[in-house]
Design a protein around this nucleic acid. Structure first.
Length: 975
DNA sequence: TACAGATCTTA
DNA sequence: GTAAGATCTGTAC
C-alpha cells in the first residue's frame, strides 16, 4: 500500500445485527431458511462494490476487506469479566445466517477477516493504523461510535445506511471532542450495551465539558478535587479506577496479530459467475438480476452454488449460557420469523388444507404439458413421481409421470397405459382405443428434460433414488433434488416410530390417507398392473402422490433448519442418492456356472445328511421344521438341555445344538450341518441366479432410510450378508467376479467401531494402541488379565475380543455369557474387570445414557440423531434394551456416516486421477470396486486415501482410520 | 394369500 | 449385548 491508495474496511458484525433488526424478516422461499440479514448484507455490499467501481465519485478503494467478530471472548474479558456480560445470545433465526454471510463475502471475492480472541473493531484499528502509516486513506464502513477514536485526517467513518461520512470535525460536532479524545470520553460515559461501567452520573455532555477543562482523563482523575460540583466530584473520585478500567476496555488494539497482510487486501474484479451462483442459491432474484446485468453474466447459465449450512448448537443444555435451551421453543411471539415458528406454521397449514383429487388434470397433449412446465418455472418447484411396471427400478418401464407445482396443483401424464382388462393378456394393441390419447414417451422426455435438469428448479420426490434411477435409464440426470423420505429420516430416525414411507408420512403430518396402491390395482390374485388401470383413477392416485409429496416437503424441509439437521441432510443423505443409484445400475457380475455347481453339491450333501438324520431319529420328519425337530429331540429322544422359546416351542437354535453335539450327540451335529447347507443353497446359490440380468449382473437395491443408526441396508438380493465365515460359505463369494480384463477391489475399514469408541470415549490406552498399530484385542487382554501380548494363548485373546464387541453393543453379562458359553457370574466379573481397567468407557456410557434420557435421542460425531423415546420406559427390561441400542448407535452411526462421506467423495476423487474404477457395493465397512487390470495399482492408494480421510475436516479423530485393500478375480480372494 | 416366528447370514 | 434381510414353517384368514 502506498500514498494515494484507499482502504475500505467494512464492520461486518455490526452490519449483520443492524440488517437483522432494521429489515423485515425474510426466508428463502424453497425451504424457509432465514435469510433476511443475509439479504440486507448482500444489498449493502453490492451497493458498496458498485459505488467503488464508479470512478467519477473519487473515493475508489484500492484495498477492501470485510471484518467480523470471531468469538465472544476476547482479551477484554480477562480485564473485566462483566464485559458484554448482559449481551443476549443472537436470535435463533439469526444464528444460521452468520456462516451464510461469511460465504457471501467470499462470493463477492472479498477478503473475509476475523481472528480468535479479537473483536472486529480491533482488527479494523490495526489495519487502519497500518494503512495510515503507509500513507493511504481509510474509509471505515460502520456506524459504531466505538470506531470514532480511529477517525483522523485520512480516516473517515462511513454510515452507509444513513449515507453519512464522518471526519474529525463531524466527530467533534457530535460529541464535543476530537477523535483523539473519544477514548477518554467513552471511558467516562461508559456503555450500557457492552456493560462498560464508566462513571455514574457522567454523560456525553459532561464528559466533553470535563475533557475540555482538564485535557485528558488522567489529568482529570488527578485533579478531580478541583471539580466544583460536589456530587460530580465525589463520583469521579470514587470511580476513578472504574474509569481507568473502562478506558482499557474501550481502547481498540491497534497491534493485533494479522493473518492477512494489508497488501493482500488489494481489490480485484468480482467473479460474476461465482457471485451470481451464490445469490441464486439464496434466491435473491432482484439482486441476482441486478448483479448479473452489471457484471455481464448470464444468470440463466449459472447454477446455484452449493451453500454450506452450519447448524445451530445441538443437545440439551450443553451450553454454558442457560438461555440457549429456551431458544428452541420459540412458540411465543412472532411465529413465522423463526425456523421453528415457520415449521410449526407449515404444519398447521398442512392440516387445514384438504386434498381435492377432483382438481387433478390428466395431460394428453403437448400444449398442456408445456403449460405445466411453465408453472414449475413460476414456482421454482416441481414435485415429481414416476408410475412404472415394477418396484425394481432396474426393471421398471414407465407407465406415466405425475407432478405438482403447488399444494393442490397436480397433474398426471399417461404414457404407457394399455387397455383395461388386458392386464394379464400379453396382447396390447387393439384394446388401446379405450385408453384414449397418450403422449409418446420420447416426446414427454424431450419436453421434461430441460426442467428436470434445470439447476434453478428444485425437484422434489419421495424415495428419489427410485425415480432418479428410472430417469437415468432414460438418459436424464435429474438435479437438484430434495427427498421427503430422507428429510423425514434425518429428522425422525427412531426405533419405535414407524417408517418414512409416503402414506405413513401423509397420515402423520397431513392427516390425510392417500389412495393406496392396493385400492387402485387390487391385491393378490386379482391385482392388475397399473398400466391396465383406468386412467382417471390412476390420475387421482398418481397426482395425489406428487401433491402429497410437495405438501410433505413444505412441512418437513423447514424443520431441518429449525432442528439443526441441515448439514446431515445436505452432506450425508442428498448427495448419496445419485451415487447409490449408479452403483445399483452397474450391478456386480456373477458366475452362473459356479453357483449352479455349488447348488448341485449342496443338494447332494443335504440329501445325505437328511437320510442320516432320519435314521438317527428313527423316523422321517421335516428337518426344516423347528417344531417337529424339537419334538423329536426333546420329546421322543429325550435329549437334555431342552429350553422353550417365548411361544412355548422347543428352542433348537444352532448354539444349543452345538452344545449338544459337544456332549457327544450325533444327531444335533448333523442337523447343524444340514441347516447350514440348506441355508446356503436356498438363500444364495439357488436364489442369486434369479436376480441376474442378461449381462450376468446382479443389481441390489440399497435402502437409505430403514435403519435407526444411519447404516444402509441392501435387499433383492441382500448383498450385505453373503457368507464369509465358513469355508463352504466363502465359496459363494467366488461366484462374484470381475469381467475379463478387470479385477474386483475390496477395501474395508479395520476395526472402525472400536477406533471410534476409543476416540469418542477418549481412552488413552486404546487411542495409543491404535496409533501404534497394535493388536487391539491382545492389548485389551493384556490390560485385563496382566498377560503379556507375546505368546498370549489364543483363548485369552478370544475372550478379550468378545468383550470388545460386547462393549460396542452395550454389553450385558447375559449376552457375554451366551457368546462365550460361560456362566453369567464369570461374564459379570469380566465386565467388572474391564471397567476397572477402562473407567473412561463406563463414564462414556453413563454420559450417553444420561444424554439419551434427557434429550430422547443420541448423536453421531457428525450430528446424525437416533431417537429412543422408550429409554424412559418404566419397564426395566425394555429400558435396558433401549439403553444398549442408544450406546451402540453413536458408534455404529458414526462409522456409517464416515463411509457415507467416503462414498460421496469417491467418484470425484477417482475421476480427478483419471481412473476408471467403478464403485459397486457397500457392506457397512467395506467398498467393492470393479477396476481395469492395469489400473489396480493406481486405484488402491486413491481409494484408501478417500476412506481414511473421510472424517475430515469435520472431525479430527484421535485415532488413525486404517483401510485394508486388495484386488483379485473374485470377491472371496479380494476380501 | 398374508403374516409372525424361528433361524441364519452379514458388519 | 448392536444393526440389518431372506427363507422356511405353521397358522390364521
Amino acid at each position: 500500500m502506498q500514498k494515494g491508495d484507499h482502504l475500505f474496511l467494512v464492520d461486518g458484525s455490526a452490519y449483520i445485527f443492524r440488517a437483522y433488526h432494521a429489515l423485515p424478516p425474510l426466508t428463502r422461499k424453497s425451504d424457509g431458511l432465514p435469510v433476511g440479514a443475509v439479504s440486507g448484507f448482500c444489498n449493502m455490499l453490492w451497493k458498496l462494490v458498485e459505488e467503488s467501481r464508479d470512478t467519477s465519485v473519487g473515493v475508489c478503494p484500492t484495498h477492501f476487506a470485510v471484518i467480523f467478530d470471531h468469538s465472544s471472548t476476547t482479551f477484554r474479558n480477562a480485564l473485566y469479566d462483566g464485559y458484554k456480560a448482559h449481551r443476549p445470545p443472537p436470535p435463533e433465526d439469526l444464528r444460521p445466517q452468520f456462516s451464510l454471510i461469511r460465504e457471501a463475502v467470499r462470493a463477492f471475492d472479498l477478503p473475509c477477516i476475523e481472528k480468535e480472541g479479537f473483536e472486529a473493531d480491533d482488527l479494523i484499528a490495526t489495519y487502519t493504523r497500518l494503512a495510515v502509516e503507509a500513507g493511504g486513506d481509510v474509509t471505515i464502513v460502520s456506524s459504531d461510535k466505538d470506531l470514532m477514536q480511529l477517525v483522523g485526517p485520512s480516516v473517515i467513518l462511513y454510515d452507509q445506511m444513513k449515507d453519512k461520512r464522518l471526519g474529525p470535525e463531524d466527530v467533534r460536532e457530535k460529541f464535543g471532542v476530537y477523535p483523539e479524545k473519544m477514548i477518554d470520553l467513552q471511558a467516562l460515559v461508559g456503555d450500557t450495551s457492552d456493560n462498560v461501567p464508566g462513571v455514574p452520573g457522567i454523560g456525553p455532555k459532561t464528559a466533553a465539558e470535563l475533557l475540555e477543562t482538564f485535557g485528558t482523563l488522567e489529568a482529570l482523575l488527578e485533579r478531580a478535587g478541583e471539580i466544583k460540583q460536589a456530587k460530580r466530584r465525589e463520583n469521579i473520585l470514587a470511580h476513578a479506577d472504574q474509569a481507568r478500567l473502562s478506558k482499557q476496555l474501550v481502547t481498540l488494539d491497534q497491534n493485533t496479530p494479522l493473518d492477512t497482510s494489508l497488501d493482500d487486501l488489494f481489490i480485484h474484479e468480482p467473479d460474476g459467475e461465482k457471485l451470481v451462483a451464490y445469490l441464486k442459491a439464496m434466491e435473491f432474484t432482484t439482486l441476482t438480476r441486478r448483479v448479473a446485468a452489471k457484471l455481464g453474466t448470464d444468470a440463466s447459465e449459472v447454477a446455484p452454488a452449493p451453500v454450506t449450512i452450519s447448524d445451530a448448537p445441538r443437545g440439551p443444555d450443553l451450553d454454558a449460557g442457560g438461555d440457549t435451551a429456551l431458544a428452541g421453543g420459540g412458540a411465543e411471539g412472532a411465529m413465522p420469523l423463526t425456523p421453528a415458528g415457520l415449521a410449526a406454521e407449515r404444519l398447521s397449514e398442512a392440516a387445514s388444507t384438504p386434498v381435492d383429487r377432483s382438481r387433478y388434470e390428466t395431460i394428453r397433449d403437448e400444449a398442456r404439458l408445456e403449460a405445466w412446465i411453465a408453472r414449475a418455472y413460476d414456482t421454482g418447484l416441481l414435485a415429481f413421481d414416476t408410475e412404472t411396471t415394477s418396484l425394481d427400478a432396474m426393471r421398471a418401464d414407465l407407465v406415466g409421470l405425475s407432478f405438482a407445482v403447488a399444494p393442490g396443483e397436480a397433474a398426471y401424464v399417461p404414457i404407457g397405459h394399455i387397455g383395461e382388462g388386458s392386464g394379464d393378456l400379453l396382447s396390447g394393441g387393439e384394446a388401446a382405443d379405450s385408453v384414449g390419447l397418450q403422449l409418446p414417451l420420447g416426446r414427454v422426455l424431450d419436453l421434461l428434460k430441460p426442467v428436470l435438469t434445470d439447476p434453478s428448479i428444485l425437484k422434489i420426490g419421495q424415495n428419489t433414488k427410485y425415480d432418479y434411477l428410472v430417469m437415468l435409464r432414460h438418459g436424464i440426470d435429474i438435479a437438484p433434488m430434495d427427498d421427503t423420505m430422507l428429510i423425514s429420516y434425518v429428522l425422525d430416525a427412531s426405533s419405535s416410530l414407524e417408517g418414512h414411507g409416503m402414506d405413513e408420512l401423509s397420515e402423520r403430518f397431513l392427516g390425510h390417507k392417500p389412495i393406496s396402491y392396493k385400492d387402485l390395482c387390487g391385491t393378490g390374485k386379482g391385482a392388475k398392473p397399473i398400466a391396465a388401470c383406468p386412467i382417471d383413477k390412476v390420475t387421482e392416485y398418481a397426482a395425489e402422490d406428487a401433491d402429497v409429496t410437495l405438501r410433505l416437503w413444505r412441512v418437513l424441509k423447514p424443520r431441518l433448519v429449525a432442528e439443526g439437521m441441515s448439514s446431515v441432510y445436505e452432506r450425508l443423505e442428498r448427495p448419496l442418492v445419485p451415487v447409490l443409484a449408479r452403483m445399483e445400475e452397474r450391478g456386480i457380475r456373477a458366475d452362473r456356472q459356479i453357483l449352479s455347481r455349488l447348488s448341485g453339491r449342496f443338494a447332494q450333501k443335504a440329501a445325505g445328511l437328511e437320510a442320516d438324520i432320519h435314521i438317527l431319529a428313527g423316523e422321517p420328519f421335516n428337518v426344516g421344521s423347528p417344531k417337529q425337530l424339537g419334538e423329536v429331540l426333546f420329546g421322543k429322544l429325550g435329549l437334555p438341555g431342552g429350553k422353550k422359546t417365548k411361544t412355548g416351542q422347543w428352542a433348537t437354535d444352532a448354539r444349543l445344538l452345538e452344545d449338544l453335539a459337544a456332549q457327544g450327540h450325533e444327531l444335533p451335529r448333523r442337523i447343524v450341518d444340514w441347516r447350514q447347507i440348506t441355508k446356503l443353497k436356498g438363500t444364495y446359490t439357488d436364489a442369486l441366479p434369479t436376480y441376474m440380468d442378461e449381462a450376468d449382473r446382479i443389481h441390489t437395491s440399497y435402502s437409505m432410510a430403514s435403519t435407526t443408526t444411519g447404516r444402509l441396508s441392501s435387499s433383492e438380493p441382500n448383498l450385505q450378508n453373503i457368507p464369509v465365515r465358513t469355508q463352504e460359505g466363502r465359496e459363494i463369494r467366488t461366484a462374484f467376479v470381475a469381467p475379463d480384463g478387470h479385477k474386483l477391489l475390496s477395501a474395508d475399514y479395520s476395526q472402525i467401531e472400536l477406533r471410534l469408541l476409543a476416540h469418542m470415549a477418549d481412552i488413552p490406552q486404546l487411542t495409543e494402541a491404535f496409533r501404534q498399530g497394535q493388536d487391539i484385542h491382545a492389548t485389551t487382554a493384556s490390560e485385563m488379565f496382566g498377560v503379556p501380548v507375546e505368546g498370549m494363548p489364543s483363548e485369552v485373546r478370544r475372550r478379550a475380543k468378545a468383550i470388545n464387541f460386547g462393549i460396542v453393543y452395550g454389553i450385558s453379562a447375559f449376552g457375554l455369557a451366551a457368546q462365550l458359553s460361560i456362566p453369567q457370574g464369570e461374564a459379570a466379573s469380566y465386565i467388572k474387570r474391564y471397567f476397572e481397567r477402562f473407567p473412561g468407557i463406563r463414564d462414556y456410557m453413563d454420559r450417553v445414557k444420561a444424554f439419551a434420557k434427557e434429550a430422547g435421542y443420541v448423536e453421531t460425531l457428525f450430528g446424525r440423531r437416533a431417537h429412543y423415546p422408550d429409554i424412559r420406559s418404566s419397564n426395566p427390561q425394555v429400558r435396558a434394551a433401549v439403553e444398549r441400542a442408544a450406546i451402540n448407535a453413536p458408534i455404529q452411526g458414526s462409522a456409517a456416516d464416515i463411509i457415507r462421506r467416503a462414498m460421496v467423495r469417491m467418484e470425484d476423487a477417482l475421476k480427478a486421477e483419471r481412473l476408471q474404477a467403478r464403485m459397486l457395493l457397500q457392506v457397512h465397512d467395506e467398498l467393492v470396486f470393479e477396476v481395469p487390470d492395469e489400473e489396480v495399482e493406481a486405484t488402491i492408494p486413491v481409494v484408501r486415501r478417500v476412506m481414511e480421510k473421510a472424517a475430515e475436516p469435520v472431525v479430527d479423530l484421535a485415532v488413525p482410520l486404517v483401510v485394508d485393500a486388495r484386488a483379485a478375480a473374485n470377491w472371496d480372494e479380494a476380501h
